[in-house]
Design a protein around this nucleic acid. Structure first.
Lengths: 204, 204
DNA sequence: TTGGGACATGTACCTTGGGACATGACGATC
DNA sequence: GATCGTCATGTCCCAAGGTACATGTCCCAA
């Protein structure tokens, strides 16, 4: 029997590999993992605790992880097995990356022409502020890591790389939202629309 | 009964609003919409035709859209209603934006420390190339729009804004992947063992 | 001692995503 | 006139996401 996770469990599931990856750092309970997902992977890969507990059971059944220790309040820490470690590595090196972005902010931008100019600008300002703040937070985090606040373990180094992605993506989105405010408003498309102010200029 | 989509249908669903937004440009069939989703919204909001047809039925039931015309091969084009138009606009102005990114590329980067240096660099080069290419495609698209190849309709203007987001995000990711290659590889965690299972330490 | 808050694990249920499957009409070409 | 490709719509089913609900423990402080 090959050591890959059985097809009957479905495939292409990144939560599974996210959990295995986190467990590769050391034993942890479902509760720990839920918090780490929330704190670290939250914005890039949300996962709620019900999903995590269910997935841990499946991973244990598949022999990818095993119970490491029992703690105070029914706490059950899991440890990754050799098979599990092999599986994360296989995923990282062999499996194709899903490059879908699924950003609602951008989806909405396709429909900006349906918004009134004032509402749109207010929206864009809010978006810009939000993205800027997140980018700043990420920058702060990156700086702390560079100062060595979190040690120099290899995991920390990877975290630093991930944080850099956050910095760049959010900054790009903040810049985009700022730029979008400079785009002249749409020509009044809906001729009957009572809202649209006829402040139309052509030209990009 | 208020004109918002009934709660029983669930909420926070962007596919629904994506369809309404596209239909706001003019009548279209499920087939058309599936293609437009694939072509334009594909990378930012994937949607397959089964989902689209199902959603169109629900939107029709809710009075957001109605059948506009019947065509050759059972083709059924839908038209947005006033209620539907009001609903997209409500969504755009009132509903909070979901800022989750859900990028597998970044999720994986948390676990780069588990990869061998060669595999990692090969991976990062592939990622950089992919993101660069997509960014270039988007840039070409943006340039064509700026030349006026697609007319000057307000929708086109919004599309231009969306495309700009793609350019910036993918360029940011390409730059990130390039930068990540300059990050010194993990401290020789793999001193002797080639696979080096990380000697797990406890401690949250 | 009692009550609240953090710790900790889970089930139930509904919605959404998405692949596989099924069907058939129309148009062009061989 | 057969066959192929595109157009076109839909169902089925399972996996995945996510909220609400349910349960119980341990610790600390009022």
């Amino acid at each position: 029997m090959d050591r890959r996770i059985a097809r009957e469990d479905g495939d292409g599931v990144s939560l599974r590999h996210g959990l295995l990856g986190l467990l590769a750092e050391g034993p942890a309970s479902g509760y720990d993992l839920a918090r780490r997902f929330e704190e670290h992977l939250g914005p890039v890969w949300p996962a709620q605790h019900p999903k995590i507990y269910a997935e841990l059971s499946r991973l244990a059944d598949a022999g990818m992880i095993e119970v490491d220790s029992h703690g105070p309040r029914g706490r059950k820490a899991y440890r990754i097995t050799d098979a599990g470690l092999a599986e994360v590595r296989r995923w990282l090196t062999e499996e194709d990356v899903d490059h879908t972005l699924r950003t609602e902010s951008v989806l909405r931008s396709f429909f900006f022409w349906l918004m009134e100019t004032d509402d749109l600008h207010a929206h864009l300002r809010r978006e810009q502020e939000f993205f800027s703040q997140v980018a700043d937070m990420a920058r702060g985090y990156a700086a702390a890591k560079d100062r060595g606040d979190f040690g120099t373990a290899p995991q920390t180094r990877s975290m630093r790389v991930a944080v850099e992605a956050a910095v760049r993506i959010y900054q790009a989105l903040a810049d985009w939202a700022e730029w979008a405010q400079t785009v002249p408003p749409a020509v009044p498309a809906t001729e009957d629309a009572p809202e649209a102010p006829p402040t139309a200029e052509a030209g990009a």
